[in-house]
Design a protein around this nucleic acid. Structure first.
Lengths: 340, 340
DNA sequence: GCGTCTGTACAACTATTGGTTGTGTATTTT
DNA sequence: AAAATACACAACCAATAGTTGTACAGACGC
C-alpha cells in the first residue's frame, strides 16, 4: 500500500471527483486515475463508483475512509516525532518500569494534548550529551554521580525519591519477613544484573553496598526483567532490589515476595535534567506536574527540591556515614546525592 | 515517506543489523541500506548509527520507533477494513447523530476488541442491496416502510425506539412551553431539510403529518445540521424534530429550545437488519448488547422485539388511527411499523 | 602486526514504476 | 445533435528501486 495513493484517495473522497483532486494535488487527472486504480488493485476492492459527474465512494470506500485518514495522521505524527524544531517533548527515562516512567505516564494522562516521546539512553554521559545537543529535552537521572560534575549549561531538579523493596523468591530466608532492616542484609547475596559499574545506578548500589556491607553482584548478562524475576523466584540464595511502586506483571504462582526495607529505607533519588536554554513549551507543564505529584502523590520527596533555575554543580560532600539525614530520618541516600 | 521503508526500518531496529533484516525481508543488504538512507533523507535525520557489528537506533531513531510501529498497525487496520472474509463488522447507521450511532458508540465502549466500521448509506433500498451482497453486515433502519417488503433472506430486530423532541429558536411561539401535545403542532411549520420523499424517514414524517395535520416541509437543499440549527435559531416561524437523546454541540447563545412532545410521544422505531446467513462472529455480541441496552438503557423500547431468527415480512396492517398502542400508551408509531 | 571476518556504503546496470501527453468513451447539458 | 464534462487507456519518458560487484572500516584471532 502506497501512502501517496492513500493521500490521493482521501483527496478524491473530499473533492468528489478525480479532476478536482488532481488540480488540488497539482498532478494530472490521469495520474490520479492511475493511483486510485493501483490502490484498488492493492486492496482487491473497488473504492469508487465512477460516474459521468464525478466519483463517489463505494461501501468499501466508505469503510476505508476513516482508516485512511488515521493512517495519514499516523504518518504525520511519525514524521513530526523527528522533525527539528517544535517536535514532541522527548524525555529520557532509565527503564520502562521505574518511577520516572510511571510519572511520565501520569503526566500523559493529565496532559493528553502534549505530544510525548519516551526514549531510554544507556548512561548519564550519553544523556548529558543528548541534552546538550538538543536530541532530548529532559532526562530522569540520579545526579550527581561521583566524577561527573553536571555542566553549567544543564539544570537539575530533584523530582522524586523512589523507595526500594527487597524482592525474593518463596524459598529465600527473608521471604516471610514483614520488613527487613538494611543492616540485616549484610551477607545476603543481592543480584542486580545489567548494572554497569560506571553508571549512576552502579554508583548508587556501590555506595549502598559499601556503607552497609552488602554483597551486590552485577555479574552475568542481563537477559531482561522476565529472566531476572524467573531466577529470583527459583533461587533461594538470591534477592534483588525493586522500586516500591513498580508494578510487577507476573503470575502469582511464582511466589515472588516483596519485603519492605527499613531503618533506613534506601531511596533512589531521581532528578529531572534539562538544558538551561531549552525553550520547549511543554517543559514548564512537566515541571508543574512533577512538583504537584511530589507534593501529593504516592511517591513522596525525601528532600527539598531546587528550582530548574538553580545551578547544577555536584557539590557532594564527604563524611556522614550514618543513615538518614536531609530532613527525612530513616531514609538513605548516597552522600554524593545529598546536596541538590 | 514510504511505508516499505518504514517497515524496513522496524525490521532493522528489531534485527539490530542491516544484514539480518535483509535476509528476513528476502532482499539484499544493499537494498536495505538504500531504503534506510532514503527514509533518513525524507525525514532529515539520521536514524541509525552504523557500527562494524550492526546498526543501533540514534536518539531520533528511538523516538521514531513507536510511531513507526503505530503507522504500520494503522496500515494493517486500513487494509483489513476492506479485506473480504473476516473484516471488521460493518454497520450502516442513518446519520451520525441519531440513536443508532449512539448505540454503536456504546457498543464500541463495551467491546473495544471488536473492530467496527460505520458507514452511512442513503436509503433503505441501498442498505438492503448492500446487506444482500455482503457489503455491510447490519443496518439500523425503520422497517418496513410501505411498498418495500423485506426480502425473505433478511431479518429485522426491533432494537430501540427514539422519542422525538421539538427543537425551536428562542422566538418561536412554543419556545417557552414545558411540553407540547402532538395535536397542538397542527398549523405550525416543521422544517426537515434533506428528508427524501421515498425514504423511510420520509414515510415516517409523511404518516405523522397526515395523522395529526402537521405541515412538514422538506424543501430546500440540506446544508448540514449546523446550517439547520442556525436557521431554526434565527427563524421564529420554524421548528424541527430531533431525537431526544441527540447531544447538541452548539453554543448556548443560540438559545435553541428543546420541547418534549406528549400525548402521544412520537418515537422513531429503529430495527437492526441483517442477512439471515451472515456468520460474522461479532453479530451475536451486537444483538446481546442492544437487547441489554433496550432493557435497561436510557432509550427504551416501546414494543416487543422479535429475535433475529424471526421472519422479516412486512406484515403491516392498516387501521387504528388513534394514538398510543402496542403496549406502551402515549407513544405514536406509524401503522406500517406496528408489527415487527 | 597482519590477515580474516563481519557489516555497511558506493558504483554501475537494469527492470519497474510513476509521471506526462494524447486520445477514446460514456453521460449530461444545451 | 452537438458540446461539455469526467474518467480510462495507450504510448512515451524520467526517476526510482532492485540487483551484482566492489570498497572500506572495525573486531577478532594468530
Amino acid at each position: 500500500m502506497d501512502l501517496e495513493a492513500v493521500r490521493t484517495y482521501v483527496a478524491v473522497a473530499e473533492a468528489g471527483q478525480f479532476q478536482k483532486a488532481a488540480t488540488d494535488l497539482t498532478i494530472t487527472q490521469q495520474a490520479v486515475s492511475k493511483r486510485i486504480a493501483g490502490l484498488e488493485r492493492d486492496l482487491g476492492v473497488r473504492l469508487f463508483t465512477r460516474t459521468p459527474r464525478g466519483a463517489e465512494p463505494t461501501v468499501d470506500g466508505q469503510a476505508f475512509l476513516p482508516h485512511a485518514r488515521e493512517l495519514l495522521r499516523a504518518a504525520d505524527r511519525a514524521a513530526a516525532s523527528v522533525r527539528p524544531g517544535s517536535r514532541p517533548l522527548r524525555v529520557d527515562v532509565i527503564n520502562s518500569r521505574g518511577a520516572a516512567s510511571r510519572l511520565m505516564r501520569a503526566f500523559h494522562r493529565a496532559h493528553p494534548g502534549v505530544e510525548l516521546d519516551i526514549v531510554m539512553l544507556l548512561d548519564i554521559e550519553s544523556a548529558v550529551a543528548a541534552l546538550r545537543t538538543g536530541a532530548i529535552d529532559a532526562s530522569f537521572r540520579a545526579v550527581a554521580a561521583p566524577g561527573l560534575p553536571l555542566p553549567e549549561d544543564l539544570t537539575a531538579t530533584r523530582v522524586v525519591d523512589e523507595p526500594l523493596d527487597l524482592l525474593t523468591g518463596p524459598g529465600h530466608a527473608l521471604a516471610a519477613a514483614r520488613a527487613v532492616r538494611l543492616a540485616d542484609l549484610a551477607g545476603h547475596r543481592i543480584w542486580m544484573p545489567g548494572i554497569l559499574p560506571g553508571s549512576e545506578w552502579g554508583a548508587y548500589y556501590e555506595a549502598l553496598a559499601a556503607e552497609f556491607g552488602l554483597t551486590i553482584e552485577s555479574t552475568g548478562p542481563n537477559f531482561g526483567s522476565d529472566a531476572l524475576l524467573d531466577t529470583i523466584a527459583d533461587t533461594p540464595a538470591l534477592a534483588t532490589f525493586m522500586g516500591e511502586d513498580t508494578r510487577l506483571v507476573w503470575p502469582t504462582t511464582h511466589g515472588l515476595r516483596r519485603v519492605p526495607i527499613t531503618d533506613p529505607v534506601p531511596v533512589y533519588p531521581h532528578s529531572l535534567l534539562q538544558h538551561r536554554d531549552n525553550p520547549h513549551p511543554a517543559l514548564p507543564a512537566l515541571h508543574a506536574h512533577l512538583a504537584a505529584a511530589a507534593g501529593s502523590g504516592a511517591v513522596g520527596m525525601a528532600g527539598a527540591s531546587g528550582g530548574p533555575g538553580a545551578s547544577g554543580g555536584p557539590g557532594a560532600s564527604g563524611g556522614e556515614g550514618a543513615p538518614g539525614g536531609e530532613g527525612a530520618p530513616g531514609v538513605w541516600i548516597p552522600d554524593w546525592a545529598r546536596v541538590r
